[in-house]
Design a protein around this nucleic acid. Sequence first.
RNA 1: GCGAGCGUAGCUCAGUCGGUUAGAGCGCUGGUUUGUGGUACCAGAGGUCGUGGGUUCAAUUCCCAUCGCUCGCCCCA
Length: 442
Amino acid sequence: MKIRPISGFPEWLPEQRIVEQALLDQVRRNFELFGFRPVQTRAVEELDRLAHKGSTDKEIYAIRRLHADPDETDDKLGLHFDLTVPFARYTLENRGQLVFPFKRYQIQKVWRGERPQEGRYREFYQADIDVIGQDSLPLCFDAEMPLLIHAVTSSLPLPPVRVHVGHRKVLEGFYRGVGLPDITPVLRIVDKLAKIGPDEVRASLVSEAGLGPDQAERCLALSQLRGGLEVIEQVRALGVEHELLETGLGELHEVLSAAAELPPGSVVADLGIARGFDYYTGTVYEAFLQGLESIGAVCSGGRYDNLADAGDAARFPGVGVSLGITRLLGPLFRRDALVATRRTPTCVLVALDKEQTRSRSQGVAARLRARGIPTEVFHAAHKYGKQIKYADKLGIPFVWFCGDDEGNGQIRDIRSGEQVEAHADQWEPTPDDRWPRVERPS
RNA sequence: GCGAGCGUAGCUCAGUCGGUUAGAGCGCUGGUUUGUGGUACCAGAGGUCGUGGGUUCAAUUCCCAUCGCUCGCCCCA
């Protein structure tokens, strides 16, 4: 078998995985800071459930047991393609034991069989955060999402993030007020505004969606609105009236108002957002890295009132967003925009003097580890030059040379060459050196 | 599903208008330096030129097919 990569299934080098883990840790920490509870679901769901929502042409990986009987009729399984469908199922399955509103986060790999391209993979991490209410869910959770996205992303060594907030009720109410019967094709065309430009959108609305010139013009005008709270009045100024539109504008206003304390530009109203309308029913979000908009939305989500269908009278409305960890990292790695300070967790390499004193070196390592300093002992009593070179290649900042069996020795900072007397129970690296960190090269 | 580009050393690539032993840089191993690295110099290892077929006296090179990777489009849950 020839060894080669498999398209769409990225694997990182250790120094990249260090970056990925640091991001995952930081994301998790922030989710918990907002009081969300951890959940992990199985990798598989019943195929029927996966294919149920939305269109049927989803690119799902099916699971097959090689030794299955040809006539086996067991439930067919597939790998989940997002974390929302498994979460909805999980919530219903455990509804009797969960506390509502149920705030959960879930960081897992998902799989999609689509054709890979930059930033789009077949296996990737998603970090999902959702709130599900029983029967109803207050709008304050919609308003909290942009704050959360801002908190998470600004805790990471990333460029500033801009969260675009749209609202399905605004769009749908507007379209109804304009007199459009079927809004789905309109949404799909409008969604391409950034890619194909206003002229193309206007033409497509007429030719493909069958809108009249005036209708197309108004829809286009709506989708081009972007900015702060003033956008609300700008929508009204377009002169379309509909009850649903007013409801949406009210909700949009509340969500935007909540973001008032964030730095200007962190959250903007954007009525050009028209994604994921399979099941979104209210607020929708898309977040972009400022200056790196070309890699696409790194975080997206919205409000869904009808996703979790218990099959009885109970309703479980939810709101949430998904952060695309891998889709973020891939393009950033490609641009060398995110690097670890070293290629290994190791902070101190304990040199091995000679085979007879291996236990002395191991003793030093044990003392350092006991105080939480990542330490390894060099594997063989090679020349010190070789041992230092090994540390240098891995970016290990310190090499320890043993003195006696009591923990005395010398520690060398191989970046500066400075070497000082030290004791293994006392010596401390600077906080910046203890663990590898993630940096954004300027 | 549609389209484009690319497959030569571990990596990045050159090259052969078809011709004897296929090259560079980086990386790797060793040495100069016999127990304190990075620089410099020297030496060395490492290739069925993606795979199959065709044309030819001769194919890594030309042609066809195929597989793989990358990037777009569609789609994006």
